[in-house]
């Protein structure tokens, strides 16, 4: 089918965007409402410090420790808080687990709700209307565009995030990884596998 919208994930700004935000920043700084360092700091936090590696460490531990896995499933928000993973967005986090009969996938149809404190900021496709509109309507087709084929006899569950509740998928642990350490397991947990659009990375692809 011919594509109607731009295919660049909607990242090219219209001409007015850069100037308007510079004007807002400069007003806020001149009025003494913010300091420039704080603007840079919040960017640095989410660009360089918090990211999918944080979530990957949690998932790897859940694979290795059944008790911890159960804790995450029972009380995601509380368990993350114990690990110091709370964010601005301050929402509840619910973990859902993939099994041999269920595949979970997460979307935010209304906007872009996402567990920042655990995964960092969402990728552009997660925030674009292509994914948001179709993930709830034809999830298997969308998953195939990510190269993820879920067999017909496996149930697909789609979780629509809200401002109050965000979801994280615990992907299935890849086969043949019994001897790996938690740190090595974390290498197999790619960002998309925690959103549910991909599976965890097979061992041979991750540890070359």
């Amino acid at each position: 089918m011919e594509q109607i919208t731009s295919s660049d994930g909607y990242t090219q700004p219209p001409p007015y965007a850069a100037l308007r935000v510079k004007a807002i920043q400069s007003l806020l700084v001149d009025k003494g409402l913010v300091v420039e360092d704080a603007l840079n700091e919040v960017v640095d936090l989410y660009e360089n410090r918090i990211g999918p590696k944080d979530g990957a460490a949690v998932i790897a531990r859940a694979w290795a420790e059944p008790e911890f896995r159960q804790q995450l499933l029972d009380d995601g928000t509380g368990t993350l808080a114990e690990l110091g993973m709370t964010g601005f967005e301050g929402a509840h986090v619910v973990f859902v687990e993939n099994t041999d009969t269920v595949h979970n996938v997460v979307v935010c149809t209304l906007c872009s709700c996402y567990p920042w404190a655990v995964l960092g900021l969402p990728p552009a496709w997660y925030k674009a209307p292509q994914y948001r509109s179709r993930a709830v309507m034809e999830p298997r087709d969308v998953l195939q565009e990510f190269g993820t084929f879920v067999p017909d006899d496996k149930e697909v569950r789609v979780w629509d995030s809200t401002a109050e509740i965000r979801y994280i998928v615990i992907p299935e642990r890849p086969a043949g990884t019994e001897d790996l350490t938690v740190e090595q397991l974390a290498e197999l947990v790619n960002r998309d596998s925690m959103i549910g659009t991909r599976l965890a990375t097979p061992r041979q692809e991750a540890i070359a």
Binding site: T5, S133, R134
Partner: peptide, 23 residues
């Protein structure tokens, strides 16, 4: 937009940066 038609296929990016520009 949930369930609306006509937006086209999902476009993903390899090694996507957190931000795509200073703006």
């Amino acid at each position: 937009v949930g369930g609306k038609h006509g937006f086209g296929t999902v476009t993903t990016e390899e090694q996507e940066p957190v931000f795509h520009g200073q703006w």
